[in-house]
Every structure is written in C-alpha cells, then in structure tokens.
Amino acid sequence: MAELLTPAILLSILSASVGAATIILLAALGELLTERAGIWNMGVEGTMLCGCLAAYVAMCETSSPITAAGAAMLAGVAAGLVIGFLTVSLKVDHFVTGLGFNLLASGLTLFLFRSYTAGGKPAGYATIDRWPIPFLSEIPGIGPILFNQHLLTYAALLLVPLVSVFLARTRPGLECRAAGENPEFLEAKGISVAKRQYGALLVGSALTALGGCFMMLAFANEFRPDISGGRGWLAIVAVIAGNWRPFRTMIAVIVFAVLDSLAVHAQGMGVAIPYQFFLMLPYAASILLLAVVRTRSGQPARLGIPFLRR
C-alpha cells in the first residue's frame, strides 16, 4: 500500500475522484429532490442507464456533447414520466415501481444498443476535454484537484448549494418539501400534490440521466450493458446516509468516488491485491455507511407512501 500514497499518485486519485463524484453527485441530487417530494424512487440505476445510452447514441450521431446532454436529459424526463405515472397517478408501490423500472431499463437499453450496433459498431468518440479555471487551477494541491475538471463537474458542485437554497428558501422548494412531509396541507391550500411530485421526479430524473451522460462523455467512449454499474444505487445510499441534506449527501458521494478511483488506480499500478477486491470497495462501503450513520431524522414523513386524495 505504501506506493499507493506518494503525493503525485494521491493527487491523481483525488483529482479522478472529483470527476467520478460528478456522476454519483448529479444522480444523488436528483434523487434527493425526488425523495424530499415524497417519492421513494428506486429507479435511479435504470434512469442513469437510459441517460448513458441516450448520450452514447447522440454522441455517435452528432459528436456534440451538448446534444448528448440534451438527449440524456430527455431520456431522464421520459424515465421520470414512466415512474411518475405508476407511482403518482396509479399509486403503485414506490419500491415495486423502481425495481420494475430498473429491470425494464436494463432490458430495453440492451435491446436498443444491440439494435443500434447491429450493422457494425460505430466508431467511438473522443472523451470530452477538461476546462481548467485560469489561476485557480495553478494553486498547488487543491488547484488541480478542484479547478482542473470538466464543466459539468463545476456545475454539479454548484448545484449542491443551489438545491439546498431551493429547498430551504424558495416557495416551489417549500411546496416540494410539503408534498413529502404533509401532502394534506398542500391539498387543503388548493395546491396539487401530484404536480409537485411529477415536477420533482422529472427534474430529478433529468439530473440523474445527466450523471449517466457525464459518465459516457468523460470516462467511456462506448456503451456496455449495465454500464452504470450500481452508481445509481450508490446515489440512493448517499441520500440516506446524508440524512436527506444536500451537503451531507455530497460527503457520502465523495467517499464512494474516492473508493471508485482507488480501484482504477490500483489496477493500473499492479498492487498485489486482486483488482476485484478494490472494485468491491464502494459497494461494501455503502453497506457499512448505512450501518454506521444511522441518523434518519431528515427522512420526509411521507416518503414512499402513495398519496390518496379524499
């Protein structure tokens, strides 16, 4: 392990972690919004996968990262609509819906990918460039870690305070929280609970899919079946461990991201421990995190309970 911790390598791991964190952070913030509105969306993994495929196809067709991001977010909105129709409109159990949606997304993306590549795989595309921020990126230490990243990484980090302020200080944010805490109250005020929940789900799912898009643009230049590899689940864990608060959720995300990049670096450096054990780390850590961090005071009172109008 000693050779793992030279300053240069540590820097490289941390810098990669911030990149890897972007994927999970976008998804976790989306899930946080959704859960605060009372929808316990377990379909994060599937939504992310839809975003990955949409971004991949858009990138192969147009080579434009902006189109790819748009396509991914549209796919996310579509996923949110399906989940919303089942949970909000039809009152199907939230867990059952999410699990069902994940299975659908896994099968459907595989089918669409195979159909798309049936006539031969399209040539890959180059991963997107970093956007170093002038001056800031030259600060020794944190400069290259925080300020030599992709545009979407800065956006994701900025979203943390934005989501926090949105929920705590704005009227739509308050209404969103009320849908998760006390929907009868919203209803009594003549405000539609369903609309707030749909809103949170659509925005949240678009963010989740954007996380998938970032993964395709910055880390992979080819789609694989189930390429999201559990990151959607890690996002759900981050929200729970973060006690449904944006900043704490970000901390949990960073823990997963560091472990994620550790695996990549260990593989590259030929550490004696088989790489599969490093790959297990984020998943093992997620279970451990839930067992240790057991404050659930921030959990919305009506999270996961379908709201029936009287």
């Binding site: 039809l90 009152k91 199907v92 299975l103 099968g107 595989l110 089918f111 990918f113 049936a118």
Partner: peptide, 21 residues
C-alpha cells in the same frame, strides 16, 4: 437481437404493475 426478450419482459412487468391497479 435476443435482447428483445429481456426488453419484452421488462415492458410486460411494468404493464402488469400498472394494470394491477
């Protein structure tokens, strides 16, 4: 592609869940 089957199964599942309402 044979992947039609998992896709079909997923679709069927969501319709069954929806219809169960």
């Amino acid at each position: 592609p044979s992947a039609l089957v998992p896709a079909m199964q997923g679709i069927l599942l969501l319709f069954v869940l929806g219809a169960a309402v």
